[in-house]
Design a protein around this nucleic acid. Structure first.
Lengths: 247, 247
DNA sequence: ATTGACTCTCACGTTACGTGATAGCTTAAA
DNA sequence: TTTAAGCTATCACGTAACGTGAGAGTCAAT
């Protein structure tokens, strides 16, 4: 399929100027030129363009992209798998941002308080090293406080734990939004059970009882519902189901 | 909390130069200056910065951001809600991209075929009008072809229809991935039924029969399974359930 | 033959900072 | 108390990835 600039531009949703630019810098030179000097792009060019735009979307500078796709050892298959992974990571980041903003909304309503660091949780503005996330995390003091048994862990361990807990909260919150009745939540609840048993002794019954506390004790409810309104109730129910299924 | 440039920069993960820049253009002027001319930021400034970075992440140019947050009618609450919506839309887009790349992976493995347009589905590179998506969509010729009854529609109408159909395919595909047993799919199948009746006459029985064709006629199967392996079968079953429930 | 929609190549403009250069400030250690 | 490390400041030029005309040739249809 021979295509002109405009045709290509329209298909992929970029500007003609962008194609000119990519030609200029040798990133994507058209397959051929017409007698009158028009750029003629082939299907092959289009596939290359797809690769380019993928990498661009992932934040790579054009220079790097050029290196990557011109590398003789460039493996399209591997590249696609990599890109998929990066997109999935992105979605995680996005989920955290959404959680963060929902928390901020509650915060501005005066329902909860947030530390300065918390306000920026989920935001990873250091896009520099191409998504190679290596930033520090901040534990959730509030939760630490309500689970005193971990007092003899190191600060680091506590933070890691707090983050793990937050992850589970977030996971449950988005699961609930997407598919409230799905059984996937049971798997996550299991993770929750195992995590709790890292820091205390929870029998199945104790676990169920803890779930009940999530809705009865306001300190729990408040903390948990930061991650989504009604999450405490959702967890209580899921924990009850889990308990009943496992004995 | 009085903070210097570096402290703020480290907390939110941006560069000192960026803060200088924001000061230069009057986007974020520090609360105060020390006697020696050092910028001193307050908690308030930090919150403003949070807003700025949110909008930036959403693709707004700094100039617009300045207008927005300096607008006397600027409502933080509303803004947050808006940002939440935009983030959710983003997640949808991201999901489409992920679906697209997974499809591409299959494609390169030779498992399916893709049209040029399909290869770029889910990619919205026109970030220009600040996420106010108003780009054109391209219908799915293949599907159009297998549903010849719409020959007397305008090109535009056909494209809109094709896009509607694709949306439903995608919706079903992700529903199936997330919660195969959910009843939500029935609602989507209903949308499918109504859509089909816009372009032809489908009795409930014809609808059920059509579902059967999805798995029996390879032309259908191929097209549908592009949106997810096994989607054709999934749809056939759901269509059968729908039919049985509605007579 | 003309119009309207594309195409080309300069070439300067723009956004959002990066990257030194040079110089003053602060604080802890020698 | 000086000294060095680590911040801070203000120019000011550099850069990435195009945007935006300007001026001119091309193509398809009426």
């Amino acid at each position: 399929m021979a295509m002109t600039v405009k045709q290509v531009a329209d298909i992929v949703g970029i500007s003609v100027r962008t194609l000119h630019h990519y030609d200029e810098i040798g990133l994507l030179e058209p397959d051929a030129l017409s007698t009158s000097g028009y750029r003629i792009y082939s299907d092959n060019d289009l596939e290359k363009l797809q690769q380019i735009l993928f990498y661009k979307e992932l934040g790579f500078p054009l220079k790097k992209i050029k290196e990557i796709i011109n590398d003789p050892s460039f493996n399209r298959q591997e590249a696609l798998e990599l890109q998929r992974k990066m997109l999935l990571e992105r979605r995680l980041r996005l989920d955290k941002m959404i959680a963060s903003i929902e928390k901020t909304i509650q915060y501005t309503k005066g329902e909860i308080t947030m530390s300065n660091e918390e306000k920026f949780e989920g935001f990873d503005f250091s896009r520099n090293p191409y998504e190679q996330e290596a930033r520090e995390r901040w534990g959730d003091e509030a939760i630490d406080a309500s689970n005193q048994k971990i007092g003899n862990m190191t600060k680091k361990e506590q933070q890691a734990l707090g983050e793990e807990m937050n992850d589970i909260y977030r996971e449950l919150a988005s699961l609930r939004d997407l598919a409230p009745e799905a059984e996937q939540s049971q798997a996550v609840i299991e993770k929750w059970y195992l995590l709790l048993n890292k820091m205390g002794d929870y029998s199945l019954d104790a676990f169920k009882g803890l779930g009940q506390m999530y809705v009865e004790d306001e300190r729990f409810t408040k903390n948990i519902d930061q991650f989504g309104n009604g999450l405490a109730k959702f967890m209580r129910d899921a924990m009850a189901v889990y308990t009943d299924n496992h004995k």
